[in-house]
Amino acid sequence: MPKVHVFARDHINTDEIIPARHLTTDVESELAKYAMEDYDKDFVKRVQPGDIIVAGADFGCGSSREHAVWALRGAGVAAVIAPNFARIYYRNSINNGFLALECDGIVEAFQDGDPADLDLTGGTITNTRTGQQLTFVPVPQFALDVQQAGGWLEYMKANDQAALEAETLNAHSTQAGHGHPGQEEQHA
């Protein structure tokens, strides 16, 4: 069963998730060694594959670097749950197939090391030590599909290659009769 790592402070920025001095690579396993280093030096020693980070509001604020998502995913973190996220971090999470779940009251519901049961289908997380269950904002099916594929690029490769190959300039949207190439006849 996954354990929860609580980072209760609001506004944890991307420099705290992965310090800028370690941005010399985009290899997740390398970045993982330094995940949360400036916030908690022992985090990478404790985290196990499938564990969950519970954090305060505006998690991932600061820069737009994807490295923050890669570092956590590389360290084995399955999801971050917070009341809300910085918009760019949230989008980077979706694009990289990483779960960023919004849940009010999450920080108060867990202590560091509590075991948790995360039910994506049901939209709940349960603290199995206390029995407290919270409902999080449902994950859009699209985001779940991207997560299952391993990220946006993998999703596109798996799902849209045939559709992309079938597109032509003569697609219905280009045949609106405005004299543009793509019409059946060109008017003089």
Rank of each mutant, 00 (worst) to 15 (best):
A162D: 14
G131V: 01
F110Q: 07
D117E: 14
A158G: 11
A149E: 05
R129A: 12
E154W: 04
A163Y: 06
T130L: 09
T130C: 10
A162L: 15
E154T: 02
T135Q: 04
P140C: 02
T126I: 12
N159W: 04
Q161I: 04
G123N: 12
G151H: 08
Q141N: 10
G150M: 07
A149G: 06
Q141G: 03
Q147K: 13
D112Y: 05
P115S: 09
T135Y: 01
Q141M: 07
Q133Y: 06
D117H: 14
A162H: 09
P140G: 04
P115L: 06
V139E: 05
Q111L: 06
F110C: 03
L120K: 12
T128C: 09
P140T: 03
F142D: 11
K157F: 07
F142R: 14
L134Q: 08
T121D: 15
V137A: 05
D119M: 01
Y155V: 08
Q132H: 08
F136V: 06
Q133T: 15
G123D: 04
T135C: 06
E108D: 14
A109N: 03
N159S: 09
I125F: 06
D114P: 07
G151E: 01
E154F: 00
E108M: 07
E154Y: 02
K157P: 00
L153N: 13
N127Q: 10
V139M: 06
P140N: 04
K157D: 01
L153R: 05
A163K: 15
A143P: 01
V137N: 11
G131Y: 10
A158I: 03
Q133A: 13
G150Y: 11
D145E: 13
T135M: 03
Q133L: 00
G150E: 08
L134M: 12
G151I: 08
Q133G: 01
T124H: 13
F136R: 05
A109Q: 08
Q148R: 15
G150C: 11
D114C: 03
A143E: 02
D119F: 09
G113H: 13
Y155C: 05
D145N: 12
A143N: 08
A163C: 00
G113R: 14
Q148C: 02
G113A: 08
D145G: 04
T121C: 01
D112C: 08
D112V: 09
N127D: 06
T126C: 09
Q147P: 01
G123W: 11
T121P: 00
D119A: 01
T130W: 09
D119P: 02
F136A: 07
